[in-house]
Amino acid sequence: MLEITNLHASIEDDGTEILKGINLSVAAGEVHAIMGPNGSGKSTLASVLAGRGGYDITQGSVSFQGEDLLDMDPDVRAREGLFLAFQYPVELPGVNMATFLRHAVNSIREHRGQDELSAVDFLKLMKEKAAFVNLDPSLRSRAVNEGFSGGEKKRNEIFQLAMLEPKLAVLDETDSGLDIDALRVVSDGVNQLRAADRSFVVITHYQRLLEYIVPDHVHVLMGGRIVKSGGAELAHKLEEHGYDWIKDEAVVA
């Protein structure tokens, strides 16, 4: 599904290198968690995968379903099936949620050679998917993220994930700012969307989320590199001991 090889990326403006040789292999149907302290490069990795501007890829490659991901424009990546749940979802004043998602769904369908969804089918789909994350129906008729609370914004991201049915979903700190109930709702939504042909990369600072979304693999990102990988139990160890022991281990190594 996703093959990241020796990926190096720096900030375009000042050349600061953030990612210093990432290697990661995600197979279809797998859930990978990427954990790490602040400033380790987690969000940069998500941004670079989705194609956000402002970064230079200086080395390495990323293949997505066998194709060169880095060669695609951001909208093409999305149509090919890559979804990013934003850490800070963007507000689009005056742009109605339904209008926005209809554009999105139909762009992706067109890319896949499918017909446009009729208005009726589309609204039906919206209703069905909103139930996944208990999204307040009134939010669907409002402007995208405008005036949404922090929790509503995150829920809205998972709702969009459900609508767009990607092959690979990257969740960038989706748990930040969520209370325990919202966290459960969001996690339930994600778990329902787990499928044999769909992979997840879950980026998080805390282990808490991973109690609900149990990953197949856990990776620790520090200083722009993956310094440790393991199973779900690694997350528990991090919760108990923090990141320092890995830092020490990494230094010793």
């Binding site: 989705a50 951001p74 999305a78 999105a104 769904v105 762009s107």
Partner: peptide, 10 residues
């Protein structure tokens, strides 16, 4: 970028 990430062209 947010729109593009949802598959919408620039």
């Amino acid at each position: 970028f947010y729109c593009q990430q949802r598959g919408i062209s620039e």
